[in-house]
């Protein structure tokens, strides 16, 4: 008897490198890694045609854990590096991994402009409301009253709202996932890769070490009660008023993506000498 389903070209594990993650046992980021590898297998991609780009932080260690091409750059700059790569090499699938510190704080400006530029990238932000790699400081998404050594009385600052900011910055596709659901993440990531243009996927990914209470997120999350909207006004209202635990695609626009390299050259560089010749 034959197998009931044609074997996929590659299994999720074929997208993993042999390098062992340094994440704490229990960390949500393991699940994101699983979601990524499952999505890539599902999409029947080959690792050499995928690049995973990141900045600095726990989340940003992902590239080396895959056996895709990886770019582990400097803190906050994953999006620009990925933009350069995708524009220069449009045929590659480019995933960008970041965290709430890397992506919303030091890299905040790039986030705004990546949303409006709409280059065909899958932007996965693992949000755990804390700087983990530097051992427990408040991030832009940390609650104002969360006490830490750096902010002993809490920051007193209201949280950054990444989804609303993405919408206001012109993001064309906004989704929220949860690390407790690796298969759900895989489906969202696969959709993101198929979607032409910038796809912002915020993943609630608990930090079991510095925010152990986030283990409770699995009770809080729920599927978004309504289908994704393509009306930014309605999306804004929904995102502003949701409880932060709606999971799924929340906004789906139809803006054309940023185009890549110019078509075939019309001139050689030497031809341009006519601009200077007397």
């Amino acid at each position: 008897m034959n197998a009931p389903f044609a074997a996929a070209a590659l299994q999720p594990k074929d997208f993993k490198s042999g390098y062992k993650p340094v994440w704490c046992p229990g960390c949500g980021d393991y699940s994101v890694l699983t979601g990524v590898t499952k999505a890539l297998a599902m999409l029947e991609l080959r690792p050499e045609n995928v690049a995973v780009v990141s900045g600095i932080g726990c989340s940003s260690r992902i590239p080396a854990y895959t056996n895709c091409y990886g770019f582990h750059g400097v803190h906050g700059r994953a999006l620009p590096a990925a933009t350069g790569l995708k524009v220069a090499r449009p045929e590659l699938t480019v995933l960008v991994a970041s965290g709430d510190g890397d992506g919303y704080s030091i890299g905040g400006n790039h986030f705004l402009h990546a949303c409006r530029r709409n280059v065909d990238l899958t932007y996965i932000v693992m949000d755990n409301h804390v700087y983990g790699m530097t051992k427990g400081q408040p991030s832009p998404t940390t609650e104002p009253d969360w006490r830490s050594k750096l902010a002993p009385g809490g920051t007193g600052l209201r949280e950054f709202h990444p989804l609303v900011i993405a919408l206001a910055s012109g993001a064309n596709f906004i989704a929220r996932g949860f690390s407790g659901d690796p298969n759900g993440l895989a489906a969202l990531i696969a959709e993101a890769v198929r979607h032409p243009g910038f796809y912002f996927l915020e993943v609630l990914s608990p930090c079991v070490t510095f925010r152990p209470e986030q283990r409770g997120w699995k009770e809080a999350v729920h599927p978004a009660p309504v289908a994704p909207t393509d009306d930014p006004g309605r999306a804004a209202r929904r995102l502003m008023t949701d409880d932060g635990f709606n999971i799924g695609v929340l906004y789906k626009g139809s803006r054309a993506p940023f185009t890549g390299m110019a078509a075939a050259p019309t001139d050689s560089p030497e031809d341009l000498e006519c601009l200077f010749r007397l």
């Binding site: 750059g73 620009p80 350069g84 790569l85 400006n109 110019a262 001139d267 341009l272």
Partner: peptide
Amino acid sequence: KVGGTLVQAEDELASINMALGASY
């Protein structure tokens, strides 16, 4: 004209990192 492209970046941090990404 020569089959390349220029991207206007949001700041110099972006422009150098874009250039690194493309070169990679």
